[in-house]
Write a protein that binds this DNA or RNA. Structure first.
Lengths: 348, 348
DNA sequence: CTGTTAGCGCATTCAC
DNA sequence: GTGAATGCGCTAACAG
């Protein structure tokens, strides 16, 4: 750790207070069986020496780390921060810290990240939409409580967003609003959510419009890819009057390209996104989208993790399914106010 | 840790391989002095048993944790995620993990967060714009490498954004574009950056427009507060034709309120933000702002931390000053970045 | 109530 | 090369 001049330990405190290490420990941790005068001497000594307990050592003996691991894919902007915010707000209340592992890629890296958690956290929240359930099942340290977001794992608590249903709902909305020819901007092919969204899109388009082979642009969840799709759409408008993007970032990029190309939204083309990240409200036109209460999911994931940490013998590990909710805004002509709905209640 | 059935340790591996714990350790860590056959037996045993090293224990003996602590204030959305992204991208390359401490508040909590890092990280990146330099100086564990973002601390590496200069530049731009009466939407009063921004604003307005007492709305960095300021501005337009918001989120909220109230931006009122979070590009009108390369700062902070971890005897601890760069977009009539108004030629 | 003794899981001397 | 001790800093179980 490159400690300048050997950090001070509980032994130093004990010596300074003239007591045994055990007593110092007890006093410091507020145990009941300590005489008041001694407790005073100890805390005083600790303060004088600027003693800070070594949590690594403590957790080695208590078998409790006071931290939970969060492994996430390389998410884009707001989705990432919303998720963290949700998890953190709940974890913070319990005095737990978050050990982050934002992985930029493949399965091998996921494995590394998972291994790196051993002995450092009490539980895991894993969101790994690109690796199969079997993989997670194999590599999640056994005996380590965990909840998996968007991706099953045998015998684990799971929270999954129903991307398929969300996609269908988005298409239904577009059709209901009068769209007759739809296009989709898809997410990365190795992402299961993205896969489910294309699938739902295709199904719904076939069912509702009888179109068996709709246009699908290959995107990657980043705004730029939505932007190019929008450009392509503007150049060679194949008569498309409705676009469903697999996430909000791409939808916003698309919106931007359309505006730049002078295409009226929603007049000439309607757009629907997915996620409802904060930015969706502030795009112009504001974005109709399938809301996934991201922060809520994070909070929920933590709660389930918490209970599975507290009750090691968690019998059932039911999968919780979340169905996205349609939020209609200007991009499909649905808005009535200027776009932004009052957010959370503000403090005066 | 609620380990289901006692997790397996290096002892189990050693026993299975029929060697001593020490040898197992050497073999597993790729030391040179191990006979090939033994190494094979050990790695094989480890794999068969699904052995995963206990990093907590390892760090206790190596005095290296392989993690760095990141303590941040309760930041809003994109600023937070950009910063994390910058730090993580650099840390990830070095195989280091991030222990997050997002603190929601006061100094006492900051202290707790700081203490909670002892023995769990090799170094600290602290961004704590609401606590004074003296506080940090007192509570940063001594002997623990650290770099401070936006807030000095004696003898520590610091990276500070020149909020004062940024604010002056924003005002200068507004004036140059023809604004004659300005208003400011301020950040939280206890935030030093927010303080510097008001100060810069006041100074510049006095210097450039001779206005000694400009309107200042009290905000809190959240979009809602920018929104209410925008509403107020729309209701009782005191002849204000230029607004400088202390961050982008508030600027965007303000923009939204103005649009809702039918006030033309930039025609009747211009708006400038601060930070240049990704959303700024996608607001309509797109937002002119003072760019702070957030992710870059995070990356930079990590690099400096890294070198101060490697070289315990880091002599100088110079403060690095970052001057925000003006990015002109539609909200001050400047366009050409991030989207276009129909009517302007655009082909690159 | 207090001090002594044992580990927690691992890496690392130091002998052999 | 390899194994037997020792210790990282702390808490817990056991005496007194």
């Amino acid at each position: 750790m490159a400690t300048g001049g050997r950090a001070i330990t509980i032994r130093d405190v004990a010596r300074a207070a003239g007591v045994s290490v055990a007593s110092a420990s007890r006093a410091l941790n507020g145990h009941s069986n300590v005489a008041e005068p001694m407790r005073h001497r100890v805390t005083e000594a600790a303060r004088a020496l600027h003693y800070v307990p070594h949590l690594g050592a403590r957790s080695l003996s208590t078998r409790r780390t006071g931290a939970i691991g969060v492994v996430l894919p390389d998410l884009f902007g707001e989705f990432f921060s919303e998720m963290i915010r949700g998890i953190d707000s709940a974890a913070h209340r319990q005095g737990l810290q978050l050990l982050l592992a934002n992985m930029h890629g493949d399965a091998r890296e996921t494995e590394t990240a998972l291994r790196a958690m051993r002995g450092r956290v009490d539980g895991l929240i894993v969101m790994s939409p690109t690796v199969g359930a079997d993989f997670l099942g194999r590599h999640l340290p056994e005996g380590m409580p965990a909840v998996v977001i968007n991706g099953g794992a045998a015998g684990r608590s799971c929270i999954v967003v129903d991307s398929h249903a969300g996609a269908r709902a988005a298409v239904a909305h577009l059709v209901e609003r009068g769209a007759r020819k739809l296009a989709h901007i898809a997410g990365p092919t190795d992402n299961v959510d993205a896969q489910e969204r294309v699938r739902g899109f295709r199904e719904a388009v076939a069912d509702l419009l009888g179109d068996a082979d709709p246009i699908v642009f290959q995107g990657d969840f980043a705004d730029e890819s939505g932007r190019s799709a929008g450009m392509a759409l503007a150049r060679e408008a194949h008569g498309v009057d409705g676009v469903f993007a697999a996430n909000d970032m791409m939808a916003v990029g698309c919106l931007d390209a359309l505006a730049e190309s002078g295409i009226d939204v929603p007049g000439r083309m309607m757009v629907v996104g997915f996620d409802d990240v904060p930015i969706a409200r502030y795009a112009r036109p504001s974005l109709t989208t399938m809301r996934v209460a991201i922060a809520d999911i994070g909070r929920r994931a933590f709660e389930r993790l918490q209970s599975s940490i507290d009750a090691p013998a968690s019998v059932s590990a039911p999968t919780e399914r979340i169905v996205p909710e349609l939020i209609v805004r200007q991009s499909t002509g649905g808005d009535r106010q200027g776009g932004a709905r009052p957010g959370l209640e503000h403090t005066p």
